[in-house]
Amino acid sequence: MLIVGMGYVGHALGQALDREGVQWLGWRRQADDDPRIRPVDLDAETLSADGAGTRRIVYLAPPPKSGAGDPRLRRLLAALESEPPERFVYASTTGVYGNQHGAVVTEEASLQAASPRALRRLDAEQALVEAASRWGTQWAILRLPGIYGPGRLREEAIRAGLELPCPEVCPPGNRIHRDDIVAVIQRLVVSGAPTGFFNLADAEHMSSTDFATAVAQRIGVVLPPCIPDIDAYYAAHPGMASFLREQRWVDSSRVRQALDWAPRYDDAISGIEASLGGDRERR
Rank of each mutant, 00 (worst) to 15 (best):
D179W: 07
P62L: 02
Q112Y: 06
E130T: 11
P64Q: 06
P165F: 10
T54A: 15
V104H: 15
P71T: 03
A157M: 08
P171E: 10
A52W: 14
I181P: 06
E168L: 06
R56P: 14
F88H: 07
R55I: 07
R56Q: 13
D180F: 09
F88P: 00
G69W: 14
A103L: 04
L119H: 12
S82V: 03
E81F: 15
R152N: 00
C170E: 11
G146N: 10
E156S: 06
G67W: 08
A157F: 02
Q100C: 02
P116M: 13
C166Y: 06
P172I: 01
Y97C: 01
N99G: 00
E81R: 12
E168F: 09
G146C: 05
I176K: 03
E125P: 13
A132N: 04
S82G: 07
A79H: 04
A52H: 05
A78C: 09
T54G: 12
L60A: 02
T94V: 09
A160V: 11
E107C: 14
R154P: 15
S82H: 09
G146R: 04
R178S: 11
K65G: 14
P116L: 13
G161T: 01
G69T: 01
G151E: 00
R75M: 08
S115R: 14
P165I: 07
T106D: 08
E107H: 08
S133F: 03
A114V: 12
S82R: 02
T54P: 15
P172L: 01
N174Q: 02
L162Y: 02
A103C: 03
R134H: 13
R74D: 06
S133P: 07
R55T: 11
P167F: 11
R178I: 10
G173F: 05
A140Q: 00
L111Q: 08
T46N: 15
P172E: 10
S66I: 09
Y90C: 08
T46C: 09
K65T: 13
P63A: 10
L122Q: 07
P63C: 08
C166N: 12
L80H: 02
Q126H: 11
R143F: 10
G51N: 01
D123R: 13
L142I: 00
A124T: 08
D50M: 07
L77H: 06
A78N: 07
D70F: 12
V169K: 07
I141V: 03
R121S: 06
L144K: 01
L164F: 04
A127Q: 12
A49V: 11
F88L: 04
R87D: 04
R121Q: 05
A124C: 02
V58H: 04
G51W: 01
P64S: 08
G136M: 03
R143K: 03
P172M: 01
G69M: 10
A140H: 00
L77K: 02
T106L: 00
R154F: 11
